[in-house]
Amino acid sequence: MYRTNPLLTHSFFLLILFLPERMASQCCSTGSPVGASVYVGVLNKYHLRAITYYRYNYSDTYYQDDRKTTEDVPLQYSNYNFIGIALAYGITRRLTVETDAGYFINKTQVFKTIDYTEKGYGLATGGITLKYGFFINPMKQIEITGGAGFRYPFSLKPQMVDGVQLSRDVQPSTNAFGASGMLFLNKGFPSITMRIFSINRYDYNFTDQNDYQYGSILLNSLFVAKTVLKNLLALLQLRSEYRTPDKDHGEKRINSGNYLLLMSPQLTYAIAGKWNVSVLVDIPVYKNYQGKQLTPKYSVAVSLTRDFSLVKRPKNPVSDH
């Protein structure tokens, strides 16, 4: 059976926090951000992984192309608090199914030009993904896994508060279905307790009931993970995010679409060999935004993960395979 450093394996849990559904900014505030997904390689057969997480994001800087701008900007800042849960289950040794859902405690934007704070909240878009391990070599710690799935809104209608429709920028959901594909590549180096892996994901959003379509997103991440202390793993991620412009009734929206490059250091600590606690911070290192958009300044996140084996164990095991 495939034996690896459990901490290295568990480090993948945190990846969910890096994979945004709509990380790109709107002209007024950051868009819906988090697409939760376990988003790593396949799990062992009959294993269940549960993850809960919290994320905070803050944005206060407008960009026009790759330059900061303060000219005619409407917002002082925006932020959100998000909690999510993701479950993954190993159906076979190669096939894993996962599902995720999340809730915005708040999506807030504070205006600069007028004395007003707009706040949205509610369920984000959920997702279901099937992943298949095309190539798994436990001895060499190599894995190539591909996946496909869809995203679904819990409501097709935009959120209303006190009879007023909230702006698109603080809506908790896309209110539209979506499809996604992913490719996960991994190579471990057990002799030096190190692992390098890459996650590549493409998200496509369908149009909503108002014929508005959020742009597609291509994410490419490269990770380096290293055990630094007993039970403590350090990871460094370099992530590129490219988002195509949104379309309103088939017309490209001016203040949408971007390229973003982020650096994300993170730490994962294993507790009693069962629980894993992870913390991370997202720091943008390069931004290029079409039109004029509010851009993310930083994000912090915490996650708690646990794996459960649902395999029935024999009372008197003879061997361990």
Binding site: C27, C28, P74, L75, F111, T113, I114, Y116, E118, P158, M160, D162, G163, V164, Q165, L166, S167, R168, D169, N210, Y212, D248, I254, N255, G291, K292
Partner: peptide
């Protein structure tokens, strides 16, 4: 009761009179 909708922009207030602003 009054329901206000717009494809873009932000409403301020509720009821029969509202304010509305947009950034593009």
């Amino acid at each position: 009761t009054y329901e206000w909708t717009a494809t873009f922009g932000t409403f301020i207030g509720s009821g029969p009179t509202v304010q509305w602003t947009v950034c593009h």
